[in-house]
Lab assay of single mutants.
Amino acid sequence: ENVVSAPMPGKVLRVLVRVGDRVRVGQGLLVLEAMKMENEIPSPRDGVVKRILVKEGEIVDTGQPKIELG
């Protein structure tokens, strides 16, 4: 899985990584606000952040790609 998608609709509060960052499985990639709760979205695997496809403040839909890992 190279693309991390939104598990639920919500607002991107914070992006916790930058392009080029090495990430580990379970590491937080971003914080999504859904139903007035903050949810940290974890990396599904070890890898390197290739692209960030969302911006802080953006509203995302379920299944929308957010971060691409290499």
Rank of each mutant, 00 (worst) to 15 (best):
G10P: 03
S5K: 13
S5N: 10
E58S: 08
G10D: 01
V25D: 04
G63A: 08
N2A: 11
V17N: 01
I67E: 01
D61S: 14
E58L: 04
V23W: 03
V54T: 05
I52A: 02
P65C: 07
E58K: 03
K50N: 09
D46N: 11
E68K: 06
I41K: 01
V60C: 09
V60P: 02
K55I: 11
D61T: 15
V12R: 00
R24V: 13
G10V: 07
R22E: 10
T62M: 13
M35V: 08
S43K: 00
R18V: 10
V31H: 02
D61K: 15
R22C: 13
L32S: 00
K66R: 04
I59V: 11
K11T: 10
E33D: 08
K36C: 15
M37H: 10
G47F: 01
V17Y: 00
G57P: 00
M8N: 07
V60M: 04
D21K: 02
V31P: 00
K66Q: 15
V48N: 04
G28V: 15
D21G: 04
S43G: 02
L53N: 05
L30Q: 00
P7D: 11
Q27D: 09
V48A: 04
A6R: 03
R22P: 10
K66T: 15
V19C: 08
V12K: 01
R45S: 10
V17W: 00
V31S: 03
K55V: 12
V31E: 01
G10L: 05
L29E: 01
A34G: 09
L32E: 00
V60A: 03
M35I: 07
K66L: 15
G47C: 06
K36W: 11
T62F: 12
V48E: 06
G57Y: 05
R45V: 13
R18I: 09
K50L: 15
S43F: 03
V15W: 08
P44A: 04
R51D: 06
G63D: 08
V12A: 00
R22G: 07
I52D: 02
G47P: 01
G26Y: 05
V15R: 00
T62W: 10
L30S: 00
I59F: 14
Q64C: 08
G57N: 07
L13Q: 04
V17S: 00
A6S: 13
G47R: 02
V60K: 01
G10Q: 05
G10M: 06
Q64M: 08
G57F: 06
R51F: 08
A6P: 04
G28Q: 06
V4N: 03
E58T: 07
N39E: 10
L32M: 12
G20Q: 04
V25S: 10
E33M: 12
